[in-house]
Design a protein around this nucleic acid. Structure first.
Lengths: 196, 196
DNA sequence: ACCATCTTTGACTATAATGTCAAACATGAC
DNA sequence: GTCATGTTTGACATTATAGTCAAAGATGGT
């Protein structure tokens, strides 16, 4: 290459991701991104084309990290522990940073009307993948036997529930509360020892 | 009164509410509201002061209707039926209209960063009230005995879960799917006849 | 019929963001 | 060292929205 890009693309994506997490896709302007990354607006247009492309690119990083965390958390033989670790991963992801970053996918999902179709699709595929990942984790015999719902239903319920957690986080900013609510769900999802 | 307002305030609020439900608070401009209501932008500024005040005013209508629906739904003696009616009310509220209007409070909640403090407070109080309403409904002995969780925990879980439903609605626009997920939750929340 | 009072209207200023572009600038390949 | 190539930069035209205001318009009370 002769005309070489002057900035670190990975660092730019990381910073862009932070902006998107805090402000959401719709409320983020190219000016915001330029300020946060230190890269001139014109350069960002030149390199990526626009906000949507930057978002989609940054989202890949986010999605990969998230899914890896989920897989690791669920990789246990005790259902209660696996679900607790799962919830912990989700909570950590959304309460990290100050102010807390919130959940990017949930934030973007509710903005769906101002969101370009490509982004809508990406979010949908991400949620599909999340459910699939959870379902695979729960389907292992050692876990499935301990659950009060079939793995597929449990996975779908957990996806929906964690989206709700993300909303509650935005409103109350109370991590302990989120943990309590999650504990309630886990309680009814795991078969009581000594019962049944 | 001498200088009389020329427009029907109730109708204006209703239309404004529809706009807010479809676009969200942040993405709605005074121009949008003027177009939707047929009232000149200047008149809206004169009458209400601005977008925030219009939102808060319109939200009261929304909140009242919503809470009334919830109370009615929960007023039954069979837990499964009460929860099913509750979920049905929530789902109907968010899937009505075409395109589906979504859930105003959830939408607004996730926009929290661009939202003025007064609106944040209102949303928080609304969620508090929602939980309280559900809890009161569930605490009646005839229902509480059938539940696998104490009324308070069940109420909190239902609030969070229904926020999650609102997110899922935005992404998939699949009412049947939402019903299925809800059925799963209800199953684990209601004590099985013949068990325990 | 008149007037005081509030409302309506259209125009105006200011701000913010978009997307584009030509000129200046680096730099790896030769 | 030169140069072709892609990058950076600042400027530009455009569009959208906010918020204000003075003049014109209604209307109920007297």
């Amino acid at each position: 290459m002769v005309g070489t890009r002057q900035f670190d693309e990975t660092a730019v994506m990381q910073r862009a991701l932070n902006v998107f997490r805090q402000k959401g896709l719709a409320a983020t302007s190219m000016i915001d991104l330029a300020q946060a990354t230190g890269v001139h607006r014109g350069s960002l247009y030149n390199a990526y084309g626009g906000k949507e492309a930057i978002f989609l690119s940054a989202f890949e990083t986010y999605a990969d990290d998230y899914m890896r965390g989920i897989r690791t958390a669920l990789d246990q033989t005790d259902a209660r522990a696996a679900l607790a670790a799962f919830v912990e991963t989700v909570l950590t992801s959304m309460t990290a940073g100050s102010p807390a970053r919130g959940c990017l996918s949930t934030r973007t999902a509710t903005e769906v009307d101002e969101t370009p179709p490509a982004v809508q699709d990406r979010i949908r595929r991400w949620l599909d993948e999340l459910q699939e990942t959870i379902e695979i984790g729960l389907r292992r015999r050692c876990l499935a036997d301990q659950l009060t719902l079939p793995p597929e239903e449990a996975a779908r319920l957990l996806v929906t529930f964690t989206r709700g957690l993300a909303v509650m986080e935005r409103v109350y900013h109370d991590e302990a509360q989120l943990r309590d609510i999650s504990a309630s769900l886990i309680r009814v999802l795991v078969r009581q020892a000594g019962k049944d």
